[in-house]
Amino acid sequence: MARSTTPRRKAMFTVFAWAVGLLLFFPILWTVLTSFKTEAEAIASPPSFLGFHWTFENYVTVQERSNYGRHFWNSVVISVGSTVLGVLIAVPAAWAMAFVPGKRTRDVLMWMLSTKMLPPVGVLIPIYLIFRDLGLLDTKFGLVIVLMLINLPIIVWMLYTYFKEIPGEILEACRMDGAGLREEIIHVLTPMAVPGIASTLLLNVILAWNEAFWTLNLTAAKAAPLTAFIASYSSPEGLFYAKLSAASTMAIAPIMILGWFSQKQLVRGLTFGAVK
């Protein structure tokens, strides 16, 4: 179907897209701006947009009061660890579902997805108690496991969608050419699915990095990632918007940069299989 793209129509879409983009980006921009204000300016009404006294004071204070490096490292270990472990488990699962589906494959996939619809707080107490009994509270290993489980349905679904796109005839050709299952996976399936596996990895690193519910509830000091680092600034001590903003900016900056450079992969990953 040919779609008319008159200049006027195009201009309208551009304006609309920019408006939506700015609306979504505004809270982040405001956080970054606030992080450069003094506490007094941060709560001033009406707020000033750019005409305030710029200061790095909040960043200095945040650095002095807490250990950013340790939280950062915890975030890296937890998000990368849970993603890698998740992909190792999900590749065989998705392979089986995509290429040797059974009668109930569809149901299993739906059931996996349905676990994402359960409010996490519903299983907080049992998981907390299990973690306590196993000595996993406030450990990075415990968080790796729990975040891997939380994101596993998404990883399996994404890889399943990617694998489904690989024509069955290519794998059959490979079998006719004398390849066994191992050679088929190494020489044909994996190289063809690399873009899919890469975007799955990226998206899940981001999801795990931003995950706040479990990381806040299952950690105290040792394994606390950047989410806990931010939360420590929204304390009952009083309103410290500027410092909270500085901490938030420092926490989201790494993942924003990663996301920025991998936009193409991410968009491709999320829309893959949607359009034929």
Binding site: P167, E169, I170, A173, M176, D177, V188, M192
Partner: peptide, 13 residues
């Protein structure tokens, strides 16, 4: 046996 498929089924990579 060797087989030639309708979709050619070449390895794209």
């Amino acid at each position: 046996l060797a087989m030639v498929f309708q979709s050619y089924a070449l390895y794209p990579h």
